[in-house]
Amino acid sequence: MGGTVLLTFEVIAEALRERIRSGGLRPGDALPTQAVLMAEFGASSLSVQKAMTLLKRDGYAISHPGKGAFVAQSDVDTAEDPGSPDAENVPVVGTTARVEALELALAEALDQFTALRARVEALEAGGT
């Protein structure tokens, strides 16, 4: 990467992306657990969580609450002609995972906004 030093969570995310690209992890496969990744990379739980957030944001992974994280399904099959000039420009995984990640981020932002609005209203009610 041209002399750029990657942070631990970036190293973990890139290693998992490479496993997905190489076929070591296929769509629908469970991703390694947090404990497994912590042991494998000698990383903190926060680093593993940040790596998983990157994978979800980029559409490589999806979460199933109570079940874990899984490799996202691909919308396209580049295996038919991996040598084609367009193969590099085709997303590795589908838009469904990206939409899901954006929906989760939006829901979190809405929750934060709602909490902030309630605090402001409480302050205004107490100040008048």
Rank of each mutant, 00 (worst) to 15 (best):
E124H: 03
D81W: 01
L104I: 08
G127D: 15
A43E: 07
L123K: 13
A51M: 03
A97S: 10
A30I: 09
E14R: 03
G3K: 06
A107F: 03
Q34W: 03
P91D: 10
V120G: 01
E121R: 15
L7E: 15
P82F: 00
T53H: 08
L16Y: 09
A69N: 13
L7Y: 00
L31W: 02
E40G: 05
L31M: 13
K56A: 07
A101D: 07
T96E: 15
L102F: 03
K56C: 14
V11H: 03
I20N: 04
E124S: 07
L116P: 02
A107E: 10
F113M: 11
T114F: 02
S47E: 12
L104Y: 07
R21L: 14
E121D: 13
L16V: 05
R26L: 12
L123Y: 06
A43D: 01
G24W: 07
A79H: 06
D29Q: 05
A107R: 14
V36R: 12
P91Q: 05
A122R: 15
A105Y: 00
L25G: 05
G28V: 09
A35K: 11
E103A: 08
Q73A: 13
G83E: 15
M1F: 02
T33H: 07
P65T: 12
P65D: 13
L46K: 14
E14Q: 11
D75N: 10
G23E: 09
V36S: 12
E14G: 01
Y60W: 14
E121G: 04
L104D: 15
L123Q: 13
T4D: 10
E14T: 03
P65Y: 08
V90K: 09
T96R: 14
